[in-house]
Design a protein around this nucleic acid. Sequence first.
DNA 1: CAATGAATGTTGAAATTTGCACAATGGAAC
DNA 2: GTTCCATTGTGCAAATTTCAACATTCATTG
Lengths: 292, 292
Amino acid sequence: MDNWDEVRTAYQVARMGTVSGAAEILGVHHATVIRHIDAIEARLGIKLFQRHARGYTPTEAGEDLLRVAQATEDQFNQLVGRMKGRGDDVSGELVVTSLSSLAPLVVPVLSEFQRVHPDLIVRYLTGDRLFRLEYGEAHVAIRAGSAPDQPDNVVQPFITQEVGLYASRDYIDRYGKPSTIEDFANHYFVSTDDENSRAPFSRWLRQTVPVERITFRCTNNFCIREAVLSGAGIGFMARWEAARDPSLVEVIEPMPEWFGNLWLVTHVDLHRTTKVQAFLTFLKEQSKSWLP
Amino acid sequence: MDNWDEVRTAYQVARMGTVSGAAEILGVHHATVIRHIDAIEARLGIKLFQRHARGYTPTEAGEDLLRVAQATEDQFNQLVGRMKGRGDDVSGELVVTSLSSLAPLVVPVLSEFQRVHPDLIVRYLTGDRLFRLEYGEAHVAIRAGSAPDQPDNVVQPFITQEVGLYASRDYIDRYGKPSTIEDFANHYFVSTDDENSRAPFSRWLRQTVPVERITFRCTNNFCIREAVLSGAGIGFMARWEAARDPSLVEVIEPMPEWFGNLWLVTHVDLHRTTKVQAFLTFLKEQSKSWLP
DNA sequence: CAATGAATGTTGAAATTTGCACAATGGAAC
DNA sequence: GTTCCATTGTGCAAATTTCAACATTCATTG
């Protein structure tokens, strides 16, 4: 069965009983219909219709085809309905990925978004590796760093990630609070284990503080937070993150050069879909409350 | 969903994940595949695939289409299997029509044929009106008279219907047996009520015997037989029919001009099918035993 | 019984689709 | 980093399909 259009033509002829009627429904010339029928019969080597001057009467095989194609048309119509519906409202899956450190911000938004759209299934992917939009692994990505520049991706600025240098009250009580940057050489610092981290505050720390004073290093942002809270040293944290914990003390006034930008990235093929757009506007709206 | 071929193309792309792979399976150029995908997406206004350098990844809608089209292909393959199977062996329906007077001959043949092909459903149509092959009302017709000459029908000579003039022994005992044709004027005859009957023996009777001597007329062949058996008069019967009843006496030697030909007629579209051919050869084989 | 109308069937011209050649892209391996 | 390979994307000619107009057939109707 190499030509589904011919099946469709034969189906309409079987349904109508005449070539002309089928041609009108299909919106083609009746000669086309005749040729389709001749072609499919020749290819299968089976007569589907008995021809007479008053029309085409399906043979047993033709009746069988009629039933099958009827079901097929129903299936296709339902499919289109589902696809159109999916295009117009927000349902199905929404797959979002970000750095795991943003989870405390993103998860409440996703949760609320799901509550607004009960038909939606939310998948939030965080992990070591980057989930790739171009393979359909995610619909929306929240990325950090300099503006990504992939041709198939639609990138828009999201927020500026404001960070500060924090220590726990315990730490201040024990070692004092550094008053100047020069004083940093006498303190302990918590940072990422990745020496190539391109986060602006990481680079600033590497340039400003002697490496031997970075005495606690880990790969995961949650660990850094825990380390700072437990008094292991001074470390960078997002301001919104630090604000949640009253035991944290801002060591020095934040410097704008620490701040990095976050970007909202979508694949160009999905960017215009209602679902993705709905989520993007929702996300931007919610994020306004993240900064004072 | 106006173009089922494009659905099929999209299906293969979703299955393979690449345009090239789909093109190879479909036996078309990859440019064609790309154009089909573009066309169906444009028509539906829905993205089915995310394009990237390593291939096409189906979106949700694409996955949905994949499932539906997969089922469709299965259905079509099963359909072809059924149709081919039906073409190659003898099953389904076999619809035969004839003059009702031939039933005693035809029914045993049909019965035996059905026994040889247990999957077959036999429908034997006899009735006042002619069942028409060109509307698919029957697959095979056994017709009498001069060779039918319809363009869509395949006609082949079947047998010569040999008839004779019979009377019951009762009748002979009562009225004697006419020795010559001239003697007919003193006898009683049974015949059809149809004055326009074109059966050769009917015409011969109308020309040979005074109409007032045709004293028993009926529309049905069975009635004629019963009338002759009950001694109502002398009447024409098929020789095979008369041979079954020992109480019948052949009044005079049969004349060849009484005999009419029977024809096997099939619609041209069905004539070459295995089922019809199998029945025709079976019927001809069996009919050899009808004549001595 | 002739006229009518609705259907199929056939032919050449037009439009659409397809195939081919080549360019461009991006990932993977070395 | 460079090369290789598989893949997508595009312009143009060729092949195929489709359309339009006619001829034909057959049942119906007045």
